[in-house]
Simulated scan of single mutants.
Amino acid sequence: MDNVELIAVMRRGNQLRAEAVHEYTVTSTNEPYPEGLRTFFSSLVASGSVAPAEGEALIDSETGSYLYEGDVSGDCPYCRAGTGGNICEVRRAPT
């Protein structure tokens, strides 16, 4: 199923709002998505608004695959509290 209706809860200031999301695209099954994504980011780079830069990334030591933030857990390097998804819930900030 490529398209599903969802309800998104958004925070605006101190208020929570629920809004209908009328289309949700599963990118792994959407054939034109990868080329559209490349075109979008290439146009950003060409405009001078952003520039590619090298940086650190978390890699699985066994498979060599990139670890998405949602797949990562451990201790916050700043306060040592347990974290998940690349955010420290104690500090309420990215790790």
Rank of each mutant, 00 (worst) to 15 (best):
A81K: 09
L58W: 08
D2Q: 10
A81G: 08
T29E: 10
L58P: 00
I7Y: 11
D75H: 13
S65K: 09
T63W: 04
V9W: 09
P34G: 06
I59V: 12
L58K: 04
M10Q: 14
H22G: 15
Y24M: 15
R11V: 11
L44H: 01
Y33H: 13
M1I: 00
P52C: 03
T25M: 15
S47W: 03
L67V: 03
A8E: 13
N3Q: 11
Y24C: 15
A46P: 03
A8R: 14
E31G: 02
A46H: 07
G70S: 00
P32R: 07
V21H: 03
G13S: 00
E62D: 11
R80K: 15
L37C: 08
G36C: 10
H22E: 12
A18D: 06
H22L: 13
A18M: 03
A20M: 11
Q15P: 01
E5V: 14
P34C: 01
N30Y: 15
V72F: 08
S65W: 05
M1K: 09
P34E: 04
C76P: 14
G64A: 07
E23D: 14
G70L: 00
E62A: 12
S61C: 03
S28N: 07
S47F: 06
G55M: 01
D2K: 10
V21R: 04
M1H: 11
L16W: 08
A81M: 04
G13N: 10
G74W: 03
R17L: 09
G13V: 03
A18R: 10
N3F: 13
S61R: 07
A53C: 10
E62R: 09
G13F: 05
V21P: 05
Y33L: 00
G13M: 03
I59M: 00
F41A: 02
S49M: 11
F41C: 06
S65A: 12
I7M: 13
E31R: 13
V72A: 02
G64Y: 09
Y66I: 04
E19L: 06
A18W: 02
G55I: 05
E5D: 13
V26Y: 14
E56G: 10
Y66H: 11
D2P: 04
T83C: 12
N14S: 15
L44K: 03
V26A: 14
T29N: 05
E35R: 15
E56A: 13
S47K: 02
D75P: 10
I59L: 00
E5M: 06
R17D: 04
G84K: 14
V4T: 11
C79P: 11
Y33M: 10
A18V: 01
A81V: 08
G70E: 04
S49Q: 11
G85W: 06
P34Q: 06
E5A: 05
G48N: 01
L37M: 09
I7N: 11
S73I: 01
